[in-house]
Design a protein around this nucleic acid. Structure first.
Lengths: 261, 261
DNA sequence: TAGTGGTCTAGACCACGTG
DNA sequence: ACGTGGTCTAGACCACTAC
């Protein structure tokens, strides 16, 4: 399928100037959304893509540059360009920000959490959840509660809310049987690609429930993280509230740092 | 001064391949550190810079692309390329992450804080501070305590530590008389350009001191933010511990978002 | 009108990974 | 040896700003 595009909206009489590489990027994103290249697959070579879109290599590369910056694809010299996959590394670098205190070690004090699912229930979205998930109030959602441990001790209590419509036939068995990250499950089984997240943090006191599960006294300070996970074009796909015991761990935010995989 | 460089380290017999644009970027950064173009000043045009370094425009632009991505310079079509300055906007977008809860308004609930300096003292760096500031334990430091208010109510208690050697003759009068942000003062008066920050967040309980100043009960939950502010080549220039009352505000972290000025 | 950054092209050559 | 992405070049033209 040849999606050749005009040499330049700029050349036309149009007043809305859209650079050619932005249009190429839009077409590439569209193909990614439609699943033309599934997660982990190689895109056609830059030469072929340039021919397909009828643009020069330089213009094609500029479009892919932006996709790389948004971590939608990754380039490997000598091998090709690939659709980014959700592996443990990507999770740790871009979506898991809890590190051991004082642990300025090799990985900045990061260790992999172990997850235990405490509950998995169906429910209906309240007004606030509906707004944040861009669905209607009362729509079916799945509510999942996970307890995450670091170094054997429970540290994080996660409450996850996802729209049922986006995850048809997702059962507790499938959810807990996964041998990889949750976002990997979303990606491989439902074609939903979590690309970035928006988080709001505050300090709260542990209620009886949280205290029991995190093995703390009621009234201990906890870090509360409200996350909205976003996919292509900032479509919300998951809400998550995390309660973190920051006695021995903390939340790391390195702003402006050049991130690399 | 013509800093022409060889057409390519790649062309030599060297095994350590360094792209030409990286070398150009290094030379540009060096000139910025040495103050050849002070904050707010325009760099020479891309044509002139390309001639000066004896590279093509494309290569020169690729070097500047990275400086733009790191927010060290900003480009304005038709006007030129300028050394980024610390104004209120830059502070709010890149270094001040406290927003009003539920305030999904025009600026995402952001409002400008008003600052009151509570104390300004000389002291000596302890071992931990020395390590984080890359100075020797016992070196002279300045300790500054600020109380920040939002909407008229005190919300944030800041404790700042900076090496005295980097800020010669900085007095409380100069510090409190500034009519702009603290980082603007660092930049204009001391040529120290804060480029990014590394932050660690945890939840704590208010002690008597914090409770009194933030008008809270002792034992109320507070968000503690430990920040290291970094300049060129990740040189640390300031430590800051913030205690935030998150009753009506929260910390915003939009990871992976394409930031723009 | 002049000067600046922004886009787009066509082509040469290099570095890297795989066979 | 081959194909991939990465670098570098030289030049044309467009969009924007300031004067």
């Amino acid at each position: 399928m040849n999606q050749a595009i005009e040499p330049g909206a700029a050349g036309g009489a149009s007043n809305a100037f859209l650079p050619l590489y932005k249009e190429v990027k839009r077409l590439l994103t569209q193909s990614l959304i439609e699943g033309e290249w599934p997660a982990g697959a190689a895109l056609p070579s830059e030469t072929r893509l340039a021919q397909r879109f009828n643009v020069s290599i330089g213009t094609l590369r500029k479009a892919i540059d932006e996709l790389v910056a948004e971590r939608i694809v990754t380039r490997h010299q000598g091998r090709g360009t690939f659709v980014a996959t959700h592996n443990a590394n990507r999770l740790m670098f871009h979506f898991f920000h809890i590190v051991a205190k004082g642990g300025a070690g090799r990985d900045g004090g990061k260790e992999y959490p172990t997850t235990r699912t405490l509950s998995f229930r169906r429910g209906k979205a309240d007004a606030e959840e509906a707004g944040r998930l861009a669905i209607a109030a009362g729509d079916a959602v799945l509510r999942i509660r996970n307890l995450l441990s670091l170094g054997g001790a429970p540290v994080i209590l996660d409450d996850i809310v996802v729209p049922q419509a986006r995850f048809p036939r997702l059962t507790e068995k499938i959810f807990t049987a996964r041998d990889n990250t949750i976002y990997h499950l979303y990606q491989t089984r439902y074609g939903i690609n979590v690309l970035r997240s928006s988080e709001r943090l505050s300090a709260v006191l542990a209620d009886a429930d949280a205290a029991r599960l995190l093995k703390l006294k009621k009234g201990a300070p906890l870090l509360a993280i409200n996350r909205t996970a976003l996919s292509y074009r900032d479509t919300p796909v998951e809400l998550r509230r995390s309660l973190v015991n920051t006695a021995a761990h903390e939340y790391a935010s390195d702003l402006g740092k050049q991130e690399r995989d």
